[in-house]
Design a binder for these strands. Structure first.
Length: 377
DNA sequence: AACGCTTACAACCGCCACGCA
DNA sequence: GTGCGTGGCGGTTGTAAGCGT
């Protein structure tokens, strides 16, 4: 016996609702997809400007007679129609901010977007995927080629040793930078071992030796600035070694310890990373509501990942070519010569800090809040 | 001019977190 | 405590425009 199309539709819908776990946000058969017409834009914009979203995006399209999914309306408004949106034409400064934050926090586009007034997460994501990433990958490809074109694979070969030494040096500097950054942003990429490049035990030793040798070695690595007026960049030897201890002692590390360390460093250098972090998190909450536990959430996540690291990933560090190349790419970016300080120096000019979160002197909370308030009336 | 390839970006999809009943 | 509806977000896809041959 044949089922009518109505029955089939009903069964499919029920199947969707029952088996697939949840109902769709809208009736997909009756919503328009694809590019928005100017008329639709005008309708949506006019309504929101006059009445706001009413706190319910799903119901909004029906109210105004748009055959669109509520989510689609929301995206259209946020990414395109709301006031003060900038499209394209990313400046060098914005490039650096995006790169720096991406290195620091990864693909947290909404947070990155919060640091760039007028930019949307979607815009930045697209920009990164289509341009900035390729910029890096292009260099990465080049550095891969350079390495692979090495005349011998014999590890005793001096050419190879030099090449590896350079890579090791690069990773050393990155690791050092990670250690130092960890004071100011305990939840960053640098403090999340599961995200770190896998290191050979010898490389780890080199890093630790380098840190334990003397504070001067840090200056030689360009990670401590002796310049006056750049107090935020100067770390004490105790701080550096304490950081190493923290990173070594994965099993004992906890968030309280990190915060305590940070607070002590704050007393010395006016660098209020905790506030900065909290501010950043608040800024990133688009509903404009302060979430008091927002800074705690990543901490527990961090702890969980740390545990996971201890269980599964702490053994067998193996250097991976593509990871090394990735960091070479960052190194080479901006024409920097064998130095990972390219983004540091860029932000020094603005904030006298090597920390990308701290460098959020460009967080202009007021402007950002205004911006998002417009989007979430 | 036609075709194919690449690029840029708008839009969609699906998962997750949160608030509320 | 639980389930549901919704918003938020990151990843992915679709497609138009640009470009080279």
């Amino acid at each position: 016996m044949r089922q009518s199309s109505l029955d089939i539709h009903f069964l499919e819908e029920r199947r969707t609702r029952c088996k697939m776990g949840r109902a769709p946000c809208c009736d997909k058969a009756n919503v328009k997809k694809g590019p928005w017409s100017p008329e639709e834009d005008a309708t949506l914009k006019a309504y929101i400007e006059e009445y706001g979203t009413g706190g319910n995006w799903i119901a909004l399209p029906q109210k105004i007679g748009l055959k669109r999914c509520g989510k689609s309306c929301r995206l259209r408004w946020l990414n395109y129609l709301r006031p003060n949106i900038k499209h394209g034409g990313f400046s060098e400064e914005e490039d650096n901010i995006i790169c720096s934050l991406y290195i620091s926090i990864g693909s947290r586009w909404s947070i990155i977007a919060a640091q760039l007034p007028g930019r949307t997460d979607n815009d930045i994501k697209n920009y990164w995927n289509t341009r900035l990433k390729k910029k890096l990958l292009g260099r990465r490809k080049q550095s891969n080629t350079n390495r692979l074109s090495s005349p011998s694979e014999d590890p005793t070969d001096s050419n190879v040793s030099d090449s590896n030494a350079l890579s090791n040096s690069t990773i050393e500097r990155l690791q050092l930078h990670m250690q130092l950054q960890s004071f100011q942003n305990p939840f960053s990429f640098y403090n999340n071992p599961s995200l770190w490049p896998k290191l050979h035990s010898l490389q780890e030793q080199m890093i630790l030796q380098s840190l334990n040798a003397s504070p001067n070695s840090l200056m030689q690595h360009g990670l401590l600035s002796p310049q006056a007026g750049h107090e935020q960049q100067v770390y004490s030897y105790e701080q550096a070694t304490a950081s190493v201890t923290l990173q070594q002692d994965y099993g004992k590390i906890n968030n309280t310890k990190i915060v305590e360390l940070d607070n002590s460093s704050n007393e010395n250098n006016n660098s209020h990373y905790t506030n900065t972090l909290v501010d950043s998190t608040i800024v990133s909450t688009r509903d404009g509501v302060e979430q008091s536990n927002a800074a705690v959430q990543p901490a527990s996540s961090f702890q969980a990942e740390l545990d996971d690291f201890l269980e599964n990933k702490a053994v067998g560090f193996i250097p991976q070519e593509d990871q090394m190349a990735e960091f070479d790419s960052f190194k080479e970016m901006n024409g920097s010569k064998d130095s990972l300080s390219w983004w540091i120096s860029n932000f020094d000019t603005k904030s006298a800090s090597s920390n990308s979160w701290d460098s959020i002197s460009f967080i202009q909370s007021e402007g950002i809040f205004q911006d998002y308030e417009l989007g979430y009336q």
